[in-house]
């Protein structure tokens, strides 16, 4: 029971709790705030896994950029509390929990069926640093890196076209 393990347990429990709040709260702003909290907890978990660059990107991109966009849209639409779910949605809720528990069963079966015999391989320790990731990104993964810029361009154009009031 060392410090890393205690960190893992605390961060994991907080991440699960904030995820539950995210999907169960009635007001969208509460969901968004607890989702930001969840992203910070995940960044902590990445630090436990010694992936420093991913942790920083998690905070910058998810908590910083994507969630600001989501909160902005919530405020723009002026969404209030979700009204009480009608009777017919209980069927839908039941089906959702049923499918979720089937998924849980599948994962448990996979866990039971095989142990992941992964030992920590010897090698570089500092593979989470920005230098290491950057070198990999611009040497072995250069083509996907360039391709993803096309995807971002397409997303920008698509968002502008969709959010525009009328195409003249």
């Amino acid at each position: 029971m060392n410090l890393t393990f205690i960190f893992f347990v605390i961060l994991g429990i907080l991440a699960i709790a904030s995820a539950v709040v995210t999907i169960s709260s009635r007001h969208p702003v509460t969901s968004a705030i607890s989702l930001v909290f969840h992203f910070f907890m995940l960044a902590g978990l990445y630090l436990v896994l010694q992936a420093q660059l991913i942790a920083v990107i998690q905070v910058l991109v998810y908590a910083g950029a994507i969630m600001v966009l989501v909160v902005f849209v919530i405020m723009l639409l002026n969404l209030g509390d979700e009204e009480k779910l009608k009777e017919k949605f209980n069927v839908r809720k039941g089906a959702g929990f049923l499918l979720g528990s089937v998924l849980l069963m599948l994962i448990i079966i996979v866990f039971m069926a095989q142990r992941f015999g992964v030992k920590k391989a010897p090698g570089t320790v500092n593979q989470g640093t920005i230098e290491f990731i950057g070198r990999e990104l611009f040497s072995n993964y250069l083509f996907p890196f360039e391709a993803i810029s096309l995807l971002l361009l397409a997303a920008i154009i698509g968002a502008v076209i969709l959010a525009k009031r009328k195409i003249d």
């Binding site: 699960i16 995820a19 539950v20 995210t22 999907i23 969208p28 969901s31 989501v70 849209v73 919530i74 639409l77 969404l79 979700e82 779910l85 949605f89 839908r92 809720k93 089906a95 959702g96 929990f97 499918l99 979720g100 998924l103 849980l104 994962i107």
Partner: peptide
């Protein structure tokens, strides 16, 4: 699984 249940049960698109 928490995310899956959220997608299947909520009705607010956001």
């Amino acid at each position: 699984i928490i995310g899956t249940i959220g997608v299947l049960t909520r009705r607010n698109a956001i």
